[in-house]
């Protein structure tokens, strides 16, 4: 098999570029702790509503400007419906579904993950800028999928 000299250079540059991407991704994911949300916790989807802490979805303060948000994503909404924190707060989201698959996304942040029945998804985000942040479902979940949203108010 014969490779033209330019093709050899091109493939080497290409492979080198891809290797560079992999290195950047690995450093950022594993050394800087920015790996994608990969929680391994599980829950019985048919008993979400009676399993603590998801029986009472809400914000729990766990430190100075740090909260755990236990949330349910269901057809077609999120619970709790109202959340308020002061600017600079970190929220650790823990979300599960009692019915079908949902998505959990806060536009213009990196908070974006799937909510699978039987699993608890987790992700953290620090809300530095005040405002009313939109949380929306970005996985098709049924006829009312387009209304499935809530907000977080950051003061």
């Amino acid at each position: 098999m014969h490779l033209h000299r330019y093709e050899k250079i091109w493939l080497m540059l290409g492979a080198g570029g891809l290797a560079l991407f992999v290195v950047l991704l690995c450093v950022n994911a594993f050394a800087m702790g920015m790996a994608p949300p990969s929680s391994m916790e599980m829950i019985d989807p048919e008993k979400v509503m009676e399993t603590p802490p998801f029986d009472k979805p809400g914000l729990v303060q766990v430190g100075d400007k740090e909260y755990d948000a236990y949330m349910t994503a269901f057809a077609f909404g999120f619970a709790p419906t109202k959340m308020e924190v002061e600017a600079g707060s970190t929220i650790n989201f823990h979300v599960t579904s009692p019915d079908v698959i949902h998505g959990f996304q806060i536009p213009e942040t990196n908070v974006n993950f799937m909510v699978l029945p039987g699993h608890i998804s987790s992700a953290s985000y620090t809300f530095d800028k005040p405002g009313e942040y939109l949380i929306l479902c970005n996985e098709y979940c049924g006829a009312g999928h387009q209304v499935m949203a809530t907000t977080i108010i950051v003061k």
């Binding site: 493939l11 290409g14 492979a15 891809l18 991407f21 992999v22 991704l25 690995c26 994911a29 594993f30 790996a35 994608p36 949300p37 990969s38 929680s39 391994m40 916790e41 599980m42 974006n112 993950f113 799937m114 699978l116 699993h119 608890i120 998804s121 987790s122």
Partner: peptide
């Protein structure tokens, strides 16, 4: 499935590397 729970970050990364190979 990168944004899903239930698959560890390490296994995701293995598939990511294999995916980038298919670019070649």
């Amino acid at each position: 499935q990168l944004m899903e729970p239930g698959i560890s970050a390490g296994w995701k990364m293995i598939h990511v590397v294999l995916t980038l190979i298919v670019v070649i």
